[in-house]
C-alpha cells in the first residue's frame, strides 16, 4: 500500500469524524521516521523535537484544517517541510519565535483584551509594540475578516458555529476565509512592525 493511499485513507476517515487512524499514522510517522532522521541531523533531542513539532503542526494546519489536497509523495513532502523547519529552528536561532512562544496564547489574549498586568516589565514593553502592530493591523482588515476573527479568536466561537451565522456555504469555506484573513493580518502586522523602526 502506497504512502499516499495510507495518508488519504487516514485523512478521509478523519474528515468523516474518526481521527483514530490519522492520529495513529501521524504518531507512527513522527516517532519512527521523522524524529530519528531529524535527530541524526540535530544531535539534540530537544532541538529535534522542536523541528518535528513545528513540521507536524504546519502539516496538520495545511492538510487537516485547510484541507489542501495531499501531494503525491506525502512522506517526501513532510521531509521537505522539515528541512524548512530545521533552518528556522537551527539556522535562524530565532529570538522572535522564543519570545512569542514564551508569551503563550493566554498572555497574547490578555494583551488583546487590554490586560497586561500579569506581565513582567520587559515582556510588557515588547508586548506593547507587538500589540500596537496587531491593533493597527487588525483595524485595517476588511469588515468581514474583522467579524470572523473577532468571533473566532476573541469570543472563542468555533468555525462550525460561525459559518452559518456569517452565511458561509460550508464550514470549510469559513476555514479558508479565516486562513486568508490571518495571512492578510500577518502582512499588515509586518508592515506596522516595519514602520515602528
Amino acid at each position: 500500500m502506497s504512502h499516499k493511499y495510507k495518508w488519504n485513507e487516514a485523512f478521509e476517515r478523519a474528515f468523516n469524524g474518526d481521527r483514530r487512524l490519522l492520529d495513529e499514522h501521524i504518531s507512527q510517522f513522527y516517532n519512527s521516521k521523522l524524529y530519528p532522521i531529524i535527530l541524526g541531523r540535530t544531535q539534540s533531542r530537544d532541538t529535534a523535537h522542536e523541528v518535528c513539532s513545528v513540521t507536524m503542526t504546519k502539516f496538520w494546519n495545511k492538510f487537516y484544517i485547510k484541507r489542501d489536497a495531499l501531494p503525491d509523495n506525502v512522506n517526501g513532502y513532510i521531509y521537505a517541510m522539515a528541512n524548512n523547519a530545521f533552518y528556522q529552528v537551527v539556522g535562524m536561532k530565532s529570538k522572535e519565535r522564543d519570545f512569542v512562544n514564551h508569551l503563550k496564547e493566554t498572555k497574547i489574549l490578555e494583551a488583546i483584551n487590554g490586560n497586561s498586568n500579569n506581565m513582567e516589565e520587559s515582556e510588557a514593553g515588547q508586548m506593547e509594540n507587538l500589540y500596537k502592530a496587531l491593533e493597527l493591523g487588525f483595524a485595517q482588515l476588511g469588515e468581514r475578516c474583522r467579524e470572523l476573527l473577532n468571533l473566532n479568536i476573541l469570543q472563542k466561537q468555533t468555525i462550525r458555529s460561525i459559518a452559518p451565522k456569517m452565511k458561509f456555504p460550508t464550514e470549510n469555506a469559513a476555514t479558508q476565509k479565516k486562513t486568508k484573513c490571518i495571512k492578510a493580518l500577518r502582512k499588515l502586522i509586518y508592515s506596522e512592525i516595519h514602520n515602528q523602526d
Binding site: 503542526t57 496538520w60 494546519n61 487537516y64 484544517i65 535562524m92 530565532s94 522572535e96 519565535r97 519570545f99 512569542v100 512562544n101 503563550k104 496564547e105 497574547i108 507587538l130 502592530a133 496587531l134 493591523g137 476573527l149 479568536i153 468555533t158 468555525i159 479565516k178 486562513t179 490571518i182 493580518l185 500577518r186 502582512k187 502586522i189 509586518y190 512592525i193 516595519h194 523602526d197
Partner: peptide, 18 residues
C-alpha cells in the same frame, strides 16, 4: 520582523483540534 508577525498570528490561528 516578519517572523514576529508570523508567530503572533500562528498562535491566533491555532485550532483546538490540533
Amino acid at each position: 520582523k516578519y517572523e514576529k508577525a508570523y508567530h503572533l498570528t500562528a498562535i491566533l490561528e491555532k485550532e483546538p483540534s490540533t
